[in-house]
Computed example of a mutant assay.
Amino acid sequence: MTSSDQLRAAILLAAAMAEHERQCAERSLRFAERHEGLLDTGSAEQRKLHERMSAINRGSAERHLATRRIHLAHAERLRNWRLDDPLGVEPFMSAMAEIVGAPTALTLVGSSLAQAYASASDGVAEAAQDLELMLSEGPMTDAVRAGEPAVAEVGSRSDAQRWPLYLPALADLGVREVIAVPVGSRWSRLGALAVFGPGHAGAIVRRLGQVADALTQSVLLASDSAGGFPYLTFFSAGSGRSTIHRAVGMLCERMGCGPADALALLRARAFTAGLAVETVASGVVRREITLD
Score class of each variant (00 low, 15 high):
213 D>Y: 11
150 A>P: 05
236 S>R: 02
129 Q>C: 14
199 G>F: 03
274 G>L: 01
190 L>P: 00
188 S>I: 09
118 A>H: 14
86 P>K: 00
176 R>W: 00
165 L>V: 08
101 G>C: 07
119 S>I: 10
195 V>A: 07
165 L>H: 09
56 I>Y: 08
196 F>R: 00
43 S>I: 03
126 E>L: 12
198 P>I: 01
179 I>A: 07
82 R>S: 12
163 W>I: 00
209 G>Y: 02
144 V>T: 14
246 R>I: 05
16 A>R: 06
233 T>D: 12
56 I>C: 10
160 A>M: 07
45 E>R: 11
221 L>Y: 10
168 P>E: 02
41 T>Q: 15
159 D>P: 04
50 H>E: 04
121 S>G: 06
36 E>Q: 12
155 G>E: 00
285 V>Q: 08
76 E>P: 01
189 R>L: 14
145 R>G: 08
38 L>W: 08
277 V>F: 08
163 W>F: 06
80 N>E: 09
172 D>I: 03
26 E>K: 12
160 A>P: 06
197 G>N: 13
210 Q>A: 15
116 A>H: 11
57 N>Y: 11
205 V>I: 11
27 R>D: 13
196 F>H: 09
9 A>T: 03
151 V>E: 03
37 G>T: 02
35 H>R: 05
60 S>Q: 03
170 L>M: 04
286 R>V: 05
253 E>I: 02
17 M>C: 09
207 R>I: 09
281 A>H: 07
107 T>W: 15
267 R>A: 13
62 E>F: 06
28 S>Q: 07
127 A>H: 12
157 R>W: 12
79 R>E: 11
28 S>K: 09
187 W>R: 14
186 R>I: 00
137 E>S: 01
37 G>Q: 01
121 S>V: 00
253 E>Y: 06
137 E>W: 03
272 T>M: 06
40 D>C: 06
113 L>D: 12
240 G>Q: 04
90 E>H: 07
168 P>L: 05
205 V>R: 10
19 E>A: 12
259 P>Y: 00
168 P>K: 01
218 S>N: 14
237 A>K: 03
159 D>Q: 05
16 A>T: 10
24 C>R: 15
